[in-house]
Design a protein around this nucleic acid. Structure first.
Lengths: 164, 164, 164, 164
DNA sequence: AATGAATGAGGTTTCATTCAT
DNA sequence: TATGAATGAAACCTCATTCAT
């Protein structure tokens, strides 16, 4: 029933490429190859490389928004690990690209604000707490990428308890 | 009295280039131009682009290590802002490059460990606290790069108080 | 009728460049310029400079294989002059490149073996004779490149008669 | 008693570099490194890279000239293998360089003629025989470089007997 | 919607050479 | 005699983008 077309395949490949190989390896041809799609379609569908990443950023914001408020501590920790963590990793990669892509830069700024507001509602915390929480998780995500021995879940739990 | 030679100029320019324009704009030619130095000297002094960034990373670790333990809360906040913040911003850029530079990657991993140990001693905290603190500051640094309205100092103070 | 596309033009130019200017002058840009084709197409079609020369080597082996056994002495001499001679000159240039191109090196080794077998069949001689014949012609080709006064055809005739 | 100075070390290294790595790898810096000598000395002593190879070519001609006529067949074969063979290998490398070095090219042409005359005297053969012999040995040398399984000595013996 | 040839700018790196010391 | 910093051209290659089909 669900037909996966080239556009979706490109978005999915762009995400994987960023996460697995980093922003420097995420060339149009590399993404198209990973998506098993002709590279010309990137411009056909998104106008430019920047257009692809803008759509990815927006798409990503959407799909990582939980539908309901999380409640128990364990649910919160899982949410932080699965969603915020992943989101932060991608944010770092998109940010690296955004230095050369002014429009993407604006999109990222807006997404960041929305995410913070979103986090406040979900976790029922104030803005300053949200800033710190989101930052901490982003920082942990970044460090975990370098130090594979890090006990991420424990750190996340600690951070959350500190803030709450 | 102190003669600034091409090697130092290149290291300094590499740092500025990374911080001001991001890893994607930090090309050998751009760095050499910023240093007002012939681009061939990058290979003359460092062997490769990777060599330059490895030396930058090591140099950076060295110069950001404080000589004595910081004492008052304000000293701590200043230290976090001036040193850890800056260090984190650069770490993000070097990390982006390290995906394509295996040796730099190893250097970064070691620096991360040393920094954590170093932070423990300076601030008299345990390892888990150091992980969280360094991550939080790194995350805040990253966010502050996107959201210029963020009150960084307040956030840093809050983070430090939470952990202590 | 026959459309000569960029790929063929590049192969033809690579051959001419090698033969007329030598391996050191056969740069990607020089070949592309001689082919009157954008230099990026070398990588588009062949992946690398090495890829271009590998295809040239294989192509060359193919087109210099005679379809039938040569018979009279004059036919043999002509064959030696036109085919083996030219083949040897190119082999010297490709060999110079192959020191830096491991895959090309393997291709050349295989081509050499095939050529020897091929020569045995065409001229109805044994393997040792083929080695000597092919070597002598190659050597003569090389010397003729330096000494333009050499009477190549006479020398070839002498060599062939010696071996037969 | 015999002091090996930088000049001799450079000549020796240039020869080794050519033979072991090929003309494309024989850069001024590579040769100087192999000689364990500062690269500036190449220009100091020889004026240019070309100057170094010209002196090497002349030097080489000199030292490979036997002082007396060889007599027995085995002596001849040894002479062909040790001297002509080695000389041919180097000639191929110098020839590759000579495309870009007009003066070296002239030197090589003269050396070739002298060698042929020299070979006539040593082996007591006529000019045409000398051409063929020298060519065959050069060709065999070249092929032996690619095909390590070749029985060089047997082939040399055969060639010599054919000509005689 | 899809393909892949083509382009030109710019990436890292190597190189011969010059020159001040 | 010897050193190594410095230069600029040119090497191979990658890339985003355009466009005819």
């Amino acid at each position: 029933m669900k037909k996966v077309d080239a556009k979706d395949k490109l978005l999915e490949a762009a995400e994987r490429c960023l996460m697995e190989k980093g922003s420097h390896a995420a060339s149009v041809k590399a993404i198209a190859a990973m998506a098993d799609v002709n590279h010309g379609l990137v411009h056909h569908y998104f106008g430019s490389k920047e257009g692809l990443f803008i759509e990815l950023a927006k798409e990503h914001l959407k799909i990582t928004t939980p539908l309901k408020t999380v409640a128990t501590e364990n649910e919160v920790i899982d949410f932080l690990e699965e969603t915020v963590f992943f989101y932060s990793r991608m944010m770092v990669e998109l940010r690296a690209l955004s230095y050369q892509m002014p429009e993407l830069n604006n999109v990222l700024i807006n997404i960041l604000k929305e995410r913070r507001k979103n986090l406040q509602e979900i976790l029922n915390i104030d803005d300053e707490q949200a800033v710190i929480l989101i930052s901490s998780v982003a920082g942990l995500a970044f460090q975990a990428g370098l130090d594979t021995s890090m006990k991420l879940k424990d750190a996340l739990r600690k951070v959350f308890n500190l803030i709450n």
